[in-house]
Each structure stands twice: as C-alpha cells, then as structure tokens.
Design a binder for these strands. Structure first.
Length: 717
DNA sequence: TTAAGTATGCTTTTT
DNA sequence: GCATACTTAA
C-alpha cells in the first residue's frame, strides 16, 4: 500500500505522526474517516503494532462499523481485536468486564430516557415533590449535567450552592441513583461516569487499560463532554499517545454537555501537541463551501480555517419561498421527481430542524409515490410494543430489574391492577425479596394473591428454563408467543395494533439478523445479554440502510457525518433555524449557526433551501419570518426565487390539497379503486370513518385483505 | 379491574 | 393534532 498516493500531504502527516499528542482540525468533508482508517492500518501494517493495542472512539455505532468494514476490505485487517466503538459501547464493555469492582453485576440493564422518566415519576410521588415547581425534564437534565461533570450525590454540595432548589434536586438525585442500583441498572451518563470513576479510584485497573491501549484515537472530539475528556485523559496522560480529530465549526451537542473547551484546550491538556489542519474538501463544489463559509464566519472565537475545494459546479444552490408548509413539501416532491430522472433517490436527503416537521413530507411523498425513510423521530425501539418486549427480555437477564417487571406484570392484562400490585410490592418489601422472587414464590400459593400471579409466574418460570437452553432468536420468538402479546394484538380491534404486530415481527427478525451478524463478527453465538446491549446502544442512524432506494428524511443533528448528492434544507425560518428556544444569547445562536453549516456541508452536488410563509403550529396557521441566517448567506453563492407564487409548481401544488379536502367527506366509497404505495392497486371493501382518517378495508391482488388509513392511499385516476 | 371516553400539554436537538 | 394521563361506567 502506497500511502503517499492515497493521501494528501496533511493527511499523510496525520497518519505518520504516530507518537505523541496530535490534534487534527478537520473541516467538513476533508477525508477525516479516510485518514483515521489509514492511520490505523499504518500502525498495524507498517509499525507492526498489535491491533489489540489500538482504541478508536467514534460518534455513532454506524461509523464504528464502517471503519471496521473498510479496514477489513481495503486493508485486509481482521478488526476483531481492535477496540472500535462509541464511548458508550466501549464503556459498557469495560464495566461488564470489571463488574466485580462495582456494586453492579455484569448483566446490568441500560435505561433510556423513557425509563428515566418513569422512575422520576415514581420518585416524585414517593418524595411528594411538586412537578410544577420541579419539572421532570428540567431536573432530569440538571442531574444528567451533574453526571457529565462526574459529580455524585455524595459530593453534590461541594459543587452546588445549598438552597431550596438544589436541596430538592439533591434528594431526587440520591433517590434516583438508589433506584438504579436496586434495579442493577445504569443510564447513559452512568456508563461514562462509572468508567471514569473506576479508572480514577482503582489505579490498578486503570493501569491495565493504560498499558493496553498504546494508541488512542477519538473522532468528533468537539462533541465530547467533561466526563469523556476525563476518562480519556486518565488513560492517555501517562503515555501522551493520543490523536483527536474534530472541527469546532461542527460542534452541535453542547446541550448534551459537550464542551468545545476540550478541543480548544487540547494543547494545554497534553504536552508538545502537534497540530495539523485538514482544509481541502473532497465532498462539495466550491460554491457550496463558499456559501457555508459566508455563514460560519459570523461566529466568533473559532479556530480560523479556510476550507477549499478543487471541484467546480454548474448549478447554484437556491432558496425558495412558498406559501405554506404543505406547499414546501410539494416543492420538494416536485424537485425530487425531477432529480429522479438522472440520480437515485437514496442520494437525496431532506434535513429539518425538528422531528415534527417530517409529517408534511411523509404525506406528500406518499401521495407522489416517492419512497422515503425517516431516520430518528420516534425510534423503533421506543415504541410501546417493542419496549414491552424488551422489558420481558431484560427481566430474564437481570431479575433485579423491577422497573421492567412493573412494566409487563399486567401487560397483556392478567388481572393484576394497581391495588393488587401494591399488595405484592408490600409483601416483597416486608419479606426482603425482589419483586421477581416474590412473583415466582407466590405463584403456587392457593390464596387470592397467588392465583393472580399464577399466569405471569408460570410464564417466567418456563422462560427462565428456556433461556438456558435456547438460542437467542428462538428464545425471542418464544417470549413473543408466551407473553401473550401477539394474541393480545391479534384480538384487538384498534387498527393501529396491526402496525404493532408488524413491528413485533420486525423485532423478531432483528433478533435473527443480530444472531447472524454476531456470528459473522465473532464466530460465536450471541447471548440474550449481548442482544440487549446492542439494542440499548443502537440508534436510528446506526441502522440507516442504503440497500433500498429511498429519500432520507432526518434532523440536521442526525445528518452529522453523512453526505448526500442533493440536500434539501427546509423550514428556513426564524423559530425553526435558529430554533425559538435558542435565539436568546449569542452562544445558543452560534450553535444554531453551526447546525445550519453542518447541514449545508452535507451536499456533494447541490443544496435546495426553502421556507414557508405560513406554517401550521398546533393546528393554527401562523405567519413566519425568514431565518435571520439568510441575511448572512452571501447572495453571490445562491439564487433566490423572489416570487415563487408566479411559478407553475405553485399553482399546481396549491390546487391539489384544497380539492382533496373539499371532496373529502365522501372521499372513499365502497368499490372505489385506490393505489397504495407499497401494495399497489386495490379495491375498497369497507369504509369506517371519514376523510383521510377513514379506516379502509382494501382487497389487493392475490386476495390480500388489508386495513389501511385513508391517509396512506390515493384514488386511482 | 378494565375499557372507553375526556382532558391536557406539548415540540428542539440524542448517546 | 396527537399521544398520554386521568376519569368514569360497567
């Protein structure tokens, strides 16, 4: 492998500088991932280092997987012994391994924001705290912030003034940590904080990992928080062999505790730091970079950078103003159909500031038969039916996980309501047993309580046995069956439960897939615990599939690290970008500016920006103002369609939705021919309800009957 | 105890 | 406008 022909001068310098502290300031599209891959390969192939000594931390699991795959394919390196992962996955691995030095067992559960919320509710009730005065979301993020700064309930008041507010927060924090410990569970912040603390408190363990990881590389360093900095510093301060890669212009996670300080102060945190800038962009034509630069230069206190590109473009980015949010979606749809003539839809993405903006696009895209894929939003794994299933599984791995038990003890309904439950909890408490033990012990008692617990107790006694014998996927299938969830949804009359059933099937498929993936990666069979960990740390971006040819819809945050030929940036309005909650204060505003910068720099070929003059908010049409960032964009680098109303698209777009709504009272009739995006042409057999909300029973070719909402089909012309 | 009906509050961004 | 939380009737 000739590195010098594959890399430019600066990239080469990053690859060859393997010793000492190295700060790489890598602009958008400057071949950052590529450089990390070559550096890793260089260490192994040229420096003959054992892969075992290298730690690479990435921002998403997807990035980690990509890195591994490319190392395997291009460089013929077995990635199995490399430690490549996100902070969260690396920490989980360490914590499970070192559990004996912690008050947790190796199979601790990982709780997400949803679980946290439920626990907070319980604690509020228990401690009798007013949620008006102490809003859960606010307190939760306050406590999360403490964890990001490695502040425990014990040393809380060393860092916080003592007043009425902090006293209450402290009580909640203490109770919350106790609850987690009792459930043998950690939240996301704990994964990082506990690892950092472990390294800090147990020098022997730190030494073990310090000796092992001779080379440490951190990607997206601008989005690390204090706990992550500390964790890495503990590992790297002795050897000072660390390479961080980042771009202060792309820091967009300060609200999550990330601090630019880490990248700005890197030269003080480590000795003799070498600094290398990657400024040549290989992704976008110069006009797009100029546009992005004209925006970002309004930020102060940044590392001065001049991103440039050799590529020229014949087309110019554009900004379009339309009447309302539906027409914005129509405009994007129209453009996409045009683009579809010479490019694949999967090379296109629609980026918005808030998830709520996705709906119009979904509707209009289905109408035009444009297939799309939403990344993020309501995560698959956050859906009720999936969370229920996961709770069943978690409990098998971690019987202390009372939170999960409470979730499913009476779902599907088996006669254990609030009052019965209280009895069981009380008895468990007085006999010093976990709720799980109580459930299993009581199930054979002939008294009233025993009878109630009978079903769930039997189910679990059986499942516990199966868990020891069955493979992962068979076990998951068995849980789906014997929990009664399938039967419950099959008997339900609610049309939404059909989707739930499909989701459950998809979940079982995911278990199979994971089994195959795991076998491929490690040569072994996954345990249930492996699967659960995978689920907990998985995000939507990680699952992004480019197999099917669909447009991607996602938030600007989710687009970080990705690239597309054509990028639509929608909702260029004040209140959206910058978001209404981020317009006070220069710091917040600068982060919004960076976010838009990230969005623009995703594009390889062209950028289409759009704004709507009115937008429906909480079901009311509200007038909007153009984003204040538009004034900062240099007019040389984009075309503005001043009066979009005059154009054809506008009139076409305007009529369609109106017509539809007017006639909608009798919109669907029995016998009507319709077209569905996925199933094709069909005939309406029954209509329940009116308008777009009507529940339709439709017969598709091959005698397939489906119940579908009117929203998802169009009339056949 | 549960299902169905009514009230509310909610929208940043996510590992 | 939707999803969740709470209330009421069976």
């Amino acid at each position: 492998m000739d590195y010098s022909t594959e890399l430019n001068e600066q990239q080469l310098a990053v690859v060859a500088n393997t010793d000492g502290a190295l700060l790489v300031l890598a602009g958008a599209g400057s071949g950052k991932t590529r450089t990390i891959i070559y550096r890793t390969a260089y260490l192994i192939k040229v420096k003959k280092e054992n892969p075992y000594t290298i730690l690479v931390v990435t921002f998403t699991n997807k990035a980690a997987r990509e890195l591994k795959n490319r190392l395997a394919d291009l460089m013929d390196i077995d990635p199995r012994y490399l430690w490549i992962g996100t902070f969260h996955s690396v920490c989980t691995r360490i914590l499970r391994f070192e559990h004996e030095h912690l008050p947790y067992t190796s199979n601790f559960s990982i709780y997400d924001a949803d679980d946290q919320k439920m626990i907070f509710k319980k604690i509020y009730k228990q401690l009798n705290i007013d949620k008006e005065k102490f809003p859960i979301a606010k307190i939760r993020s306050f406590i999360s912030n403490q964890k990001d700064h490695l502040i425990t309930p014990e040393d809380f008041f060393e860092f916080n003034d003592e007043n009425l507010f902090t006293k209450t927060v402290h009580r909640i924090y203490k109770a919350y940590q106790k609850y987690l410990l009792n459930n043998n569970a950690m939240d996301f912040d704990d994964l990082i904080a506990n690892t950092a603390r472990l390294f800090h408190d147990k020098p022997k363990i730190r030494k073990k990992y310090e000796d092992r990881f001779k080379y440490i590389m951190i990607d997206e360093y601008q989005d690390t928080n204090y706990a992550q900095f500390k964790l890495i510093h503990l590992l790297a301060r002795e050897r000072q062999n660390i390479c961080v890669v980042g771009d202060d212009d792309q820091a967009i996670y300060s609200w999550r505790g990330a601090t630019i300080r880490n990248i700005l102060e890197f030269e003080h945190d480590y000795k003799n730091v070498q600094k290398i800038r990657l400024e040549q962009n290989y992704r976008s034509p110069d006009i797009i970079l100029n546009l992005a630069n004209s925006l970002i230069k309004h930020n102060s206190g940044r590392h001065e950078k001049t991103l440039w590109s050799k590529m020229k473009s014949e087309t110019k980015p554009s900004l379009v103003s339309v009447d309302n949010d539906y027409e914005e979606a129509e405009f994007v749809a129209e453009k996409l159909l045009e683009l579809k003539q010479h490019t694949l839809l999967k090379n296109c993405a629609v980026l918005y500031r808030t998830n709520a903006q996705s709906r119009q696009f979904e509707q209009i895209f289905s109408k035009h038969g444009i297939s799309y894929q939403i990344v993020g939003g309501v995560n698959f794994y956050q859906r009720k039916e999936i969370k229920d299933l996961i709770a069943y599984l978690r409990l098998l791995v971690n019987p202390q996980d009372t939170e999960s038990l409470l979730r499913i003890i009476n779902f599907p309904p088996r006669g254990i309501g609030a009052s019965t439950l209280q009895n069981v909890v009380q008895m468990a408490y007085s006999s010093q047993k976990t709720l799980f033990e109580m459930m299993l012990a009581k199930k054979d008692d002939p008294d009233k309580l025993g009878k109630r617990l009978n079903r769930i107790g039997n189910i679990y006694a059986d499942l516990v046995k199966s868990a020891r014998e069955m493979s992962l996927s068979t076990l998951v299938e068995k849980v789906v069956e014997s929990s009664g969830i399938i039967q419950y949804y099959e008997n339900s009359k609610d049309i939404r439960d059909e989707t739930r059933l499909e989701n459950i099937k998809e979940f079982v498929a995911a278990a199979y897939e994971f089994g195959e993936y795991y076998a491929h990666e490690t040569g072994g069979n996954p345990t249930l615990s492996d699967f659960l960990q995978h689920l907990a740390l998985q995000t939507d971006v990680d699952q992004l599939e480019d197999k099917s040819n669909t447009v991607f819809l996602m938030t600007m945050h989710n687009a970080k690290g990705l690239e597309f030929d054509y990028v639509f940036i929608v909702g260029m309005e004040d209140g959206l970008i910058p978001h209404a909650r981020s317009v006070d204060g220069e710091t917040a505003l600068e982060e919004e500016r960076r976010l838009l910068y990230v969005a623009i720099t995703r594009a390889k070929k062209n950028v289409f920006m759009s704004m709507a003059q009115t937008r429906r908010l909480y079901n009311v049409n509200t007038y909007t103002m153009p984003s204040r960032f538009i004034a900062e964009l240099d007019k040389k680098y984009y075309d503005k369609e001043e009066d979009y109303r005059q154009s054809n698209i506008y009139h076409k777009a305007r009529k369609k939705p109106k017509e539809r709504i007017k006639n909608s009272r009798s919109y669907f009739k029995i016998g009507q021919k319709i077209v569905h995006n996925k199933f094709g042409e069909g005939i309406v057999l029954n209509v329940d309800g009116e308008d777009m909300d009507a529940k339709l029973t439709i017969s598709f070719p091959g005698g397939v009957l489906k119940k579908i909402l009117g929203n998802y089909v169009t009339l056949k012309k």
